[in-house]
Computed example of a mutant assay.
Amino acid sequence: MGMAAPAACGNHSHTTWNHIILVIAMVLIFSAPSVYAQCRILRCNSEFVAATLEMGVTGGREGSNARYCSALRSYALCTQRTARACRGDLAYHSAVQGIEDLLIQHRCPKTGPTAQPRPLPQAPLSEDGCVYEKGRAPDYLHCGVFGDPHIRTFNDEFQTCAVQGAWPLIDNKYMYIQATSTPTRGSSYSTVLTKITVIFKNSRECAELQIYQAELDNVPPAFVDGSMTSGDRRGHQSLRIHSHDPGKYVEIRATHIGTTLLVRQVGPSLSLSVRSPRAIVESYTPEQDLQLCVWGCPVSQRLEMPPAHLSTAAYAHCSSLLPVRDVYFQSCLFDLQVTGNLNSSASAVAALEDARAMISDPERVHLLTARAGNTTPTLPVVLAMSVLTETLRRAVSVPV
């Protein structure tokens, strides 16, 4: 899967984005919980990260550099407002220096318009407070991303994406989720999920902006700021992380929007499963026009999954783990075909487990397609599929 998130400006956009992430990561790492009550640098950092991530999704359009410079000036203004409280704080001084560097790098005037404050989204909450489910029975939707990677959308469509890079999975009023895939070792066409970034946006009085990030071999049991809960209101936490398997599997609950996220590492790949009410999923604007969990992969980056020719042992392996010939069985065969590693089947098994936990109607769990039949495939297409995938990768992986 992949989209190199379009950068904000100029010919140095790819380098710029890496620089931004490095600067912000350093700032967040050195932010100490003891100064949160006085020094508001973490909020400045989070607002800038959220602004540039969203800008990255639509970057490259006319005016993006001006908007990026406005975001930088807003970041600088935020740090100025908290300067007195942050005196002597390493995170604050790192942020100030990073802003100076970026203003110079992008030739941004230090004076000029700043980004207009975005109104806080008004969550469709019940009168009972920051618990979405109270007093209502939401229509829940499910999205799963796993394997090479494969996507089951909120609309129960199933696709496989062909290209490496970073893509937005969800982008609405309440959360932004981005996934990154990279080529598997020794392969120029097979990819796996290696990074997942989740941003919970400010939601009225129930939750402040919070960030979670998982990478391959590092699925932390906490948000970026080190906390495991957030949005404390009258003894209730709107956001909570629970680690089921330290470093490998976490569950994130956002009760104020009735949403549950499961982040796993299964073998050499990450996976994500989401359960969210329809009203939350559909709370986006026309500008938020790229969401893989909503519309799936762009047509140019979809990879058809042709019938596979596998050894009897490989076919029997997937059949023993996934007896129903659904999209999860199909994914198991596909991943075995492109990796040659029997362990790659584990991602499809875990994704099916998550789907069972998140879909209330058992009849909807096993998503069937015309190609997920009961007949053993016989056409050898490993080479053809490899050529197709490599062609697609080259066609859309245009240097920035």
Rank of each mutant, 00 (worst) to 15 (best):
I359D: 05
Q210K: 13
T285P: 01
V23S: 14
V400A: 11
L22P: 02
E205G: 11
T260H: 05
A137F: 04
K110V: 15
E363A: 14
L333C: 06
P268Q: 08
P109L: 04
D148M: 03
G247M: 01
R87M: 15
S203V: 12
A91T: 08
G235S: 06
C293V: 01
L322F: 03
D335T: 08
E353F: 02
A83N: 01
L209E: 15
T82H: 09
S273Q: 11
G165Y: 05
Q80P: 00
A350G: 06
A254T: 03
P221Q: 05
V382S: 15
Q105T: 07
G247C: 04
T194V: 11
A372W: 02
E251N: 11
T52C: 02
R233F: 10
L239S: 04
Y189G: 09
S345D: 06
P399N: 09
T180H: 12
C9V: 04
T180L: 09
A137R: 07
Y140H: 05
P298K: 03
F200L: 11
L120H: 09
K195T: 04
E287K: 14
D89V: 12
A313V: 13
S347Y: 01
A346I: 10
E304F: 07
R61S: 06
E100H: 07
I252T: 00
H244S: 08
P113M: 14
R393N: 10
A91M: 02
P323K: 04
V349Y: 00
A348D: 05
E353G: 03
L388C: 15
T312D: 15
C297E: 03
S300Q: 03
Y174L: 09
V263D: 04
I241W: 01
L125E: 09
A76N: 07
L272Q: 01
F329Y: 11
V27D: 11
D245K: 11
Y212N: 04
L90V: 09
C318W: 02
R234G: 04
Y249D: 13
G56T: 00
K173Y: 12
N18L: 03
T52K: 00
T259I: 03
D225V: 03
C161I: 03
I196R: 07
Q288A: 09
T114N: 10
C130H: 01
G247Q: 02
Y328Q: 04
T16M: 12
G165F: 00
T285W: 06
A384S: 13
V274F: 06
A123G: 12
A7T: 12
G135N: 00
H14V: 14
V381I: 14
Q237D: 12
T255C: 07
T153E: 03
Q97N: 13
T339H: 07
L336Y: 01
Q301L: 06
V224Y: 01
V387C: 13
D89I: 11
A308H: 09
L322R: 10
R240A: 12
T378C: 00
T111V: 14
R253N: 15
R204G: 14
D225A: 06
P286K: 02
Y75V: 13
S203H: 06
N218M: 05
R264V: 08
M305N: 07
Q210I: 12
Y36L: 11
E54K: 08
V387F: 13
G267P: 08
T312E: 15
L169T: 04
T16K: 09
R394F: 08
L22R: 12
S13M: 10
G56F: 01
I21L: 14
A207P: 05
P246G: 00
G144N: 13
L261Y: 04
Y328W: 07
R73T: 00
